[in-house]
Design a protein around this nucleic acid. Structure first.
Lengths: 146, 146
DNA sequence: GACACTAGTTGCTTTTGTCAACTATTGGAG
DNA sequence: CTCCAATAGTTGACAAAAGCAACTAGTGTC
């Protein structure tokens, strides 16, 4: 891989991260931070229902996570119930309020995406989608077995 | 734009950010944080030579920035000299040590990219590059004039 | 039944980032 | 030329985010 290619990729990366930092940073849901939103998503949609799974999925410290979860529980978005099978763990489930929050988060995220691509023609949009698919197809996420 | 498309885009976004978070986070340069690295890059390569320009480029608080810059200056990576033209501002220049740091940062980043795309054939690589170009061409970064 | 191991909590610390107040300077309006 | 609003940068105080290590309780294995 020549340095020209590398340069292009890094350029794209800067472009991309900046682009999405803008949308990312601001109010997906006024009261939730990014991590918190991410947690709701992982619990509610990706069915990670224990803390360990979450630390792995988001690679965050378990102490930090523990606090985040209590915060969410305090706000009534989340329930931690005992697990009869393994009493060390607790099963995480979104409350209906939590589901609702997650729903609005998703709405906002959708809106932002929509806004970002607002002035594209359908064909252009399709080209972008294809491009994204290409990238995903080629660059597979290996666990980077360092 | 239909919800299917939105869904695809958000999926790509999750994929992408996760992918690069992995490479990103770890040791670009053992002693510098991401922001600091980014600062060196902006100053050394993109020729932003005043603090204001940096706050705009990286959208970070000017107080925070000020401290970051003094830290870099203390480490001898950066020099802040008076600007005769506008005495309110200070001109930022990398020292040779700073240039050196920047160089190694770039090397590391290049390595990471290379590693990430290591097992692609030249044609596949080209496809990825084209895909990235397509995305950049279509999705322009507007200042999101909210 | 002893022991190494895992899940989660808690206290403590550091890092990161924000906000507001302040100084020095600039540039424009009258 | 003088006032004054605006700008660049610094500093203090503080809040939020994140990390580390020690601890408890439970698990599974030998």
């Amino acid at each position: 891989m020549d340095s020209q290619a590398i340069h292009q990729i890094r350029h794209f990366d800067r472009f991309y991260t900046q682009l999405f930092r803008l949308t990312d940073k601001y109010h997906l849901h006024t009261t939730l931070t990014l991590v918190e939103a991410r947690l709701l998503l992982e619990i509610g949609e990706n069915h990670r229902n224990t803390a360990v799974q979450l630390t792995q999925a988001l690679t965050i410290d378990k102490g930090y996570l523990s606090r985040l979860l209590t915060k969410l529980a305090d706000r009534g978005l989340l329930q931690r119930t005992a697990n009869p099978v393994d009493k060390r763990t607790k099963i995480l489930v979104l409350t209906t309020a939590g589901e609702a929050s997650l729903a609005t988060i998703n709405e906002r995220a959708d809106e932002q995406v929509q806004h970002l691509f607002a002035n594209l023609t359908p064909t252009e949009t399709q080209q972008v989608l294809d491009a994204m698919a290409t990238i995903q197809a080629h660059v597979q996420t290996k666990p980077t077995d360092e």
